[in-house]
């Protein structure tokens, strides 16, 4: 006979929410196990340290637990949960002394004529991503994400790491779809620029 945990693991998020709203703690615990790792990873990148990420995680799930009765079935649970997490991240950030960049201007992110002359298609483009992603590049990538302005970092993480749509991301961060797209583009440009030398080095090492 199938165990209770295995049965719960097969249910959709909103089916678990319905059970949680009926007082089934095990259904809420299944939702926690689905999202805790993802929220903690995002929390570490948003807060910049493990302790704040841990506090954010607890605050998010406790708020979700207390507010689950108010969740409406037509909404998407993951969007609702990440909305709560976003507010928790903002509270953590206010306590933090870490100071990322405040703005990103397009002018500094797109290549000027001088840089355009030096750009060439390097051999690394054919390198599989798992071969390319070594410790040095991972460190540079983490650093780039960490120094992004928080509102751009959140959008990059939600769109490119978590896979939310532009519309869902807008609902989570409280911004229009066009603002989400603009922040995403700038965040991607900034990250590319941060890794630019790595790409060039990779290309020249193959020559």
């Amino acid at each position: 006979m199938e165990g209770n945990d295995a049965m719960l693991a097969k249910l959709q998020d909103n089916e678990l929410v319905t059970r949680a709203q009926q007082g089934r703690h095990d259904a809420f615990e299944e939702l926690v196990s689905r999202y805790a790792g993802r929220l903690y990873s995002m929390g570490r990148r948003m807060c910049g340290n493990d302790d704040d990420a841990k506090d954010m995680l607890q605050e998010t799930f406790m708020a979700a637990f207390k507010g689950i009765d108010g969740f409406r079935a037509e909404a998407k649970f993951s969007v609702w949960l990440f909305q709560i997490a976003k507010h928790a991240c903002m509270r953590m950030r206010r306590k933090s002394t870490f100071a990322p960049r405040e703005t990103l201007s397009l002018e500094e992110l797109v290549p000027n004529e001088e840089e355009l002359k030096t750009l060439s298609v390097a051999d690394w483009r054919r390198t599989p991503i798992d071969k390319l992603l070594n410790k040095e590049l991972q460190g540079a990538l983490d650093e780039a994400i960490q120094v992004l302005p928080p509102d751009h970092r959140m959008v990059l993480l939600l769109r490119d790491v978590e896979g939310f749509s532009a519309e869902e991301t807008g609902q989570i961060v409280g911004a229009s779809i066009s603002a989400v797209k603009s922040r995403l583009h700038r965040a991607r440009l900034f990250t590319r620029k941060h890794l630019h030398h790595f790409y060039q080095d990779q290309g020249s090492s193959h020559v």
Partner: peptide, 12 residues
């Protein structure tokens, strides 16, 4: 190419 690779790296 570099822009696309950057997105791939973030996504993976």
């Amino acid at each position: 190419e570099t822009y696309t690779k950057t997105i791939e790296l973030v996504r993976t």
